[in-house]
Computed example of a mutant assay.
Amino acid sequence: MDRSSWSSTDNFSTVTETADREQTTTTTNYAPANVEVDLSYENDTAYGDALTWYSGSLTSSALDYRHENGRRYHKYRDGSYLLPNDDTENDRLDMLHELCLQVLHRRLHLAPIENPRRVIDLATGTGIWAIDFADQYPDCEVIGCDLSPIQPTSVPPNVKFLVDDIESEWAYDRHPFDYIHARYLAGSIKDFAKLIAQCYRSVKPGGWVEFQDWDVYPTSEDGSLDGTGLRRYYDEVYGAFEEAGYEVRPGLKLEQWFRDAGFVNIHVEKFVIPYGVWPKDPHYKKLGAWAQAQAESSGYEGIALAVLTRYKKWTKEEVLVLASQARADARRRDIHMIFNFYVVYAQRPEN
C-alpha cells in the first residue's frame, strides 16, 4: 500500500543531519491538523460491532501469581509491572494489537528489515505480535520475553518465549539480533535510556530497533476534555505512575534516546488515535472504536488499581468510582478525546 494514502490529511517529512555523528532523522507526521467530528454520530450504529472483543482469551500458565483486588498480577520480580496479567487484561492486550494493526494498515513493523534471522519482542505480553511475526518470517528465530508466562503453548516452531525482566542485564544476547521490537511500554519501564542502550549493544551492526509507544496523556482539539472525569482519571493515574518512577510519555522522547544511544537513520512517525466513534473520517472512526473497545474491557480499572492502591493508598472502592466516572465521560458524544502514538525505528551503524 502506498504510505502516502494512509491519511486523508497532509503528511510532512523532515530530514536533519548531524555531521559529527553522521546521523539522519526522518520525521513523518500522520497526525492531522484536526480530526473532524462526525455530526451524524447521534444516529451512527455501524461501529457497535467493533466494540466487541477482538479475540478469545489465551490460556494462561497455572503459576503462583499475585492476587489482589480481584485481579491477578505477575509473581516473578513481583511489583515491577503494575498492570494485571489475567485473562481480562490479556484480551485487552490482544485488542491493542488489533488497534496497532489498524493504525499501521496491517503492518507488524515499519523498519525496513529484510530476511531477518533472529528477532526479539520485548515485553511480549500475550505473544500475539511474536506469533504473527513468526508466521510472516518462517525462517526467522523469534523470541518473546516477558515477566509473565501467559503466552499460548501452541505456537509456530520458530517461536519461543522467555520469562525475564528486560530492565535487567540480558543473558540471551550472546548472538546479536537482526531486529528488536517493543511497543506500548509506557508505564512499565523506569529507565528507557538504559533499555535502548541495551538494544544498541544487542542488535547487529546494520540491524534495526523499533519502539512503538504512547504519550498517554490525552488531548482534545476543541477543549471538550477539560474538567471531565476522564481528565481527572488520566491525571490521577498517570501522575501516580510518574511518582512511582515510571515513564508514561515515552513516545515524545524516543527519538532523543535513540540518538543518545548511537543509532543512525532514525525515523519518527506520529499517529493520532481518537477515542470513540465520533470522527467523521472512516479510518479514524474505526481506530476510535478499537480504542474504546480495549478501554471498555476493564481497562480503566486494570490500569489504575495497583498503582493507586499500592502507591497512593486509595481503596479499591475509590479506584472503581474513579474508573466509573471516566467510563461514563468516555461514552459522552460531546467529548472528543485523542491520543498521540509514535513509531520510532533506527539502525545501528554498520561500522
Rank of each mutant, 00 (worst) to 15 (best):
Asp64Met: 07
Glu350Asp: 11
Gly223Asp: 11
Ser148Ala: 15
Thr88Lys: 05
Thr28Glu: 12
Gly229Asp: 08
Val35Thr: 15
Arg327Asn: 14
Ala330Met: 14
Pro279Ile: 06
Phe271Ile: 01
Glu243Ala: 12
Thr28Asp: 10
Pro274Asp: 09
Trp170Val: 09
Gln347Cys: 01
Leu254Asn: 05
Val321Met: 00
Arg117Leu: 10
Ser4Glu: 08
Glu42Gln: 13
Ala295Phe: 11
Leu108Pro: 10
His97Ala: 09
Pro152Tyr: 00
Trp214Arg: 04
Glu68Trp: 11
Glu247Ala: 13
Asp164Lys: 06
Gly187Ile: 06
Val272His: 05
Ile335His: 04
Ser60Lys: 13
His105Asp: 15
Ser40Met: 07
Ala130Ser: 09
Phe133Val: 09
Leu39Asn: 12
Lys312Phe: 04
Tyr345Val: 11
Tyr65Val: 07
Ala330Gln: 09
Asp222Cys: 02
Ala62Tyr: 09
Arg201Gln: 14
His97Asp: 15
Val142Lys: 03
Arg3Tyr: 13
Lys194Asn: 10
Pro156Asn: 07
Ser61Phe: 00
Glu167Met: 11
His283Val: 14
Asp78Val: 08
Arg348His: 01
Ala261Trp: 00
Ser40His: 13
Gly207Asp: 01
Lys204Phe: 06
Asp87Gln: 09
Val37Arg: 07
Ser298Gln: 08
Arg183Val: 04
Leu99His: 07
Ala182Asp: 03
Ala186Ile: 10
Asp87Ser: 08
Ser4Gly: 03
Ile150Met: 00
Thr228Phe: 03
Asn34Trp: 10
Ala19Asp: 12
Glu17Ile: 12
Gly251Trp: 00
Val163Thr: 14
Ile143Glu: 01
Trp278Lys: 03
Gly262Asp: 03
Asn351Cys: 07
Tyr41Asp: 14
Lys190Met: 02
Glu301Tyr: 08
Lys270Ile: 04
Gly239Leu: 02
Val159Met: 02
Leu104Glu: 03
Leu63Gly: 05
Gly227Arg: 10
Asp10Ser: 14
Leu225Tyr: 13
Thr59Arg: 02
Pro116Asp: 00
Arg66Lys: 08
His175Cys: 15
Gly239Thr: 09
Gln136Phe: 04
Gly288Cys: 04
Thr9Asn: 11
Val103Thr: 08
Ala244Ile: 06
Thr153Cys: 04
Arg174Gly: 15
Ala295Thr: 10
Ala50Gln: 03
Leu162Thr: 15
Val237Leu: 03
Glu22Ala: 15
Val272Gln: 10
Lys285Ile: 05
Asp222Lys: 03
Tyr342Gln: 02
Phe12Glu: 01
Arg183Trp: 02
Arg106Asp: 14
Leu147Asn: 10
Thr124Asp: 07
Asp121Val: 11
Arg332Ala: 05
Arg106Pro: 07
Met337Leu: 12
Glu296Phe: 07
Glu350Lys: 15
Arg92Ile: 08
Asp165Pro: 10
Leu83His: 11
Asn43Trp: 05
Phe177Tyr: 15
Pro149Asn: 03
Ala50Ile: 02
Ser60Asp: 06
Ser7Met: 01
Val209Glu: 01
Glu255Ala: 15
Ile273Asn: 03
Val163Cys: 05
Ala33Tyr: 08
Tyr137Met: 03
Glu243Phe: 01
Val119Phe: 11
Trp214Val: 07
Val209Pro: 01
Asp215Gly: 12
Ala293Gln: 15
Ser13Val: 13
Glu350Ala: 13
Asp44Ile: 07
Tyr284Arg: 03
Val321Tyr: 00
Arg249Cys: 11
Lys204Glu: 06
